[in-house]
Computed example of a mutant assay.
Amino acid sequence: MELLKKDNYYHIYNREINSETVFQDANNMSYFLKLVEKYLIPKVNILAYCLLNNHFHFAIEVTADTKDVNQAFSNLFNAYTKAYNKQNSRTGALFERPFKKKTG
């Protein structure tokens, strides 16, 4: 996977691994956004975002070093997956790997 680079703009998007619902309700979305604030805000500027039931989109500007921002995305996805799996009595991956991106 090509790494996200500092001072670049990206459209980041991904969906649930089985094309099922990844955000079942407003509480799931709210929790995901809290994790975004915790893991991503220190590393990226979020220009726009959209959370849908089975996928998400972010338009971002990377403001941190490559290694730090890529680790932040990994931490975000892992933290949400653990919480979602616990809530729904499931195991395994939740999002497709690697997440998709377009440079802008």
Rank of each mutant, 00 (worst) to 15 (best):
N70T: 00
L51I: 06
A59Y: 11
E2C: 15
N75M: 08
Y9C: 13
E20A: 08
L3V: 15
L3S: 15
L35M: 10
N18R: 12
N28I: 04
N14G: 11
V36C: 15
L33T: 10
S19T: 09
T81A: 08
A79T: 04
T63E: 03
S89H: 11
L94W: 06
T63Y: 02
I17A: 10
S19W: 08
P42N: 04
Y39C: 08
N75D: 09
Y49Q: 09
Y10L: 01
F99V: 04
E61G: 02
F23K: 06
K38C: 14
Y10P: 06
Y10R: 03
P42E: 08
G92Y: 11
H55E: 07
L4R: 12
I60N: 01
N75P: 00
F32A: 11
D7L: 15
R97P: 06
N18S: 13
A26T: 13
F32H: 09
V62G: 01
T21E: 12
K38D: 14
N18W: 06
A26K: 14
Y9A: 05
D65T: 03
E20D: 13
Y39W: 13
K43H: 12
L51N: 04
Y10W: 13
F32P: 06
Y10G: 03
Q24P: 06
N78A: 04
D65E: 13
G92I: 13
Y10C: 05
D25G: 11
Q71K: 12
N85M: 04
T91C: 08
F32S: 07
N45V: 05
L33G: 10
K101I: 08
M1S: 15
Y31L: 13
S30F: 03
T103K: 14
K34Q: 15
R90E: 03
L76K: 01
A64T: 00
Y39S: 10
N14T: 11
Y31D: 03
E61Q: 12
F32W: 14
A64V: 02
S74G: 10
K101F: 12
N53I: 04
N53K: 15
L51V: 03
P98N: 12
H11G: 05
P42M: 05
Q87N: 07
L33F: 09
G92F: 12
I12G: 06
S30K: 08
L76A: 03
N75T: 05
L52I: 08
F99S: 01
S89C: 12
F32E: 06
Y13C: 13
Q87L: 05
F58A: 01
S89P: 05
I12M: 12
K102M: 09
N85G: 06
E16L: 05
